[in-house]
Simulated scan of single mutants.
Amino acid sequence: MSLSNRKIGFIGAGNMAFALMKGLVNSGLVPPENIMASDPEPSRFEGLSKSLNITITTDNIAVAKKSDIIMICVKPQVAKYVMDEISQFLKDKLLISIAAGVKTDFFEHYLSGLRVIRVMSNTPALVGEGSSAICAGKYAGKPELEIADKLFCSVGKVAVIEEKYMDAVTGLSGSGPAYVFKFIEALSDAGVKLGLSRETSRMLAAQTVYGSAKLVLETGEHPMALKDMVTSPGGTTIVGVHMLEKGGFSAAIIDAVEEATKRSEELGKK
């Protein structure tokens, strides 16, 4: 399914929108002249407009009118304001929302038959390594999911899920980069404590996490099996793993994901 002749409009031009626009242009999936974005302060995105050769405006309605696919890339508390403004211009269009916690039926309420795809992505999309989960609303189906899949594959990997699991995705991969950054920070601090320079320690920590993640994805092996490959009997690694478990490492991660999921559910209800 070609997207080269589709007009794509972004309402909201923050980090995630920028990552997706950059991915679409750099991959050649959508020509820059077919991309338009609106934001209350377009002056902040002059560099974006020039580097990608796309159009930035303050006019949400203009974006809605001129686009075949409309990306809602705003904070959840702004979603109602945006929909009140553009809903009358959405007939026969595909709406894709990355507004955290906002369910597909919220958007469908504004226009019967509106095709809606909900997406939860994450910040590694900024470097083309995002994790995105997508789900379809009541009136969207396989063709719409295929479009969303193509769009978000331009900035990483995509999973198709049922909407009831979207809050869990928010707690896992949506918030997950923060957990990983904390882990990298802790590894780096440990290296500094033991005498390594900050620069060397940070590089070793970050590359260790990056390489380990790549190993999981490319081998398809269970993380436990890969952990056992490193953990020699009576060696250094098993001592370190023991200390992590003694400190409640696994339980803390699971608790963090569960609590973030609960918070996502609360935000969705609001």
Rank of each mutant, 00 (worst) to 15 (best):
G113C: 10
F10H: 02
V25T: 03
K193N: 10
P223R: 14
V241C: 03
S197C: 02
L95R: 08
K157G: 07
N122C: 13
K22N: 04
S38N: 07
K270I: 12
Q77W: 01
T231D: 15
S2T: 13
E129S: 13
M243C: 07
V25G: 06
N53P: 00
V230K: 08
K150P: 00
L172T: 06
F106A: 12
K214Y: 05
Q88Y: 01
E162Q: 11
Y110C: 06
K50C: 01
D167G: 02
M71Y: 00
G174A: 05
G248I: 07
S38Y: 05
E46T: 15
I35M: 13
E46L: 02
K157Y: 01
V160Q: 09
A225F: 12
K262R: 14
N60S: 02
S67G: 04
S173A: 14
G113T: 13
C135Q: 08
S131Y: 03
K157I: 11
I117E: 09
T200C: 08
R198K: 12
T58D: 12
D255R: 15
P42Y: 04
F10C: 07
A260M: 04
S232E: 11
L215H: 14
M229K: 15
G28P: 03
A62P: 11
F45N: 01
K75W: 11
S112P: 09
L126Y: 00
V239N: 06
K193H: 10
G12E: 01
G130Y: 05
K65L: 10
S112T: 14
V119A: 05
P124W: 05
E163W: 06
S43Q: 03
S27M: 00
N15A: 11
S212Y: 02
A79M: 02
T237K: 05
L114T: 05
V63D: 02
M120G: 01
F152S: 13
N26P: 04
A186P: 02
C153T: 13
I61A: 09
K142V: 10
S154N: 09
S232C: 00
K142R: 07
N60H: 06
E199A: 14
A62H: 02
V127Y: 05
G240R: 07
G23W: 00
S212T: 15
V119D: 05
N60T: 06
S201V: 00
T55Y: 11
A62F: 10
G211N: 07
Q88D: 14
M224Y: 15
G240N: 09
K66I: 04
T57S: 09
D255M: 05
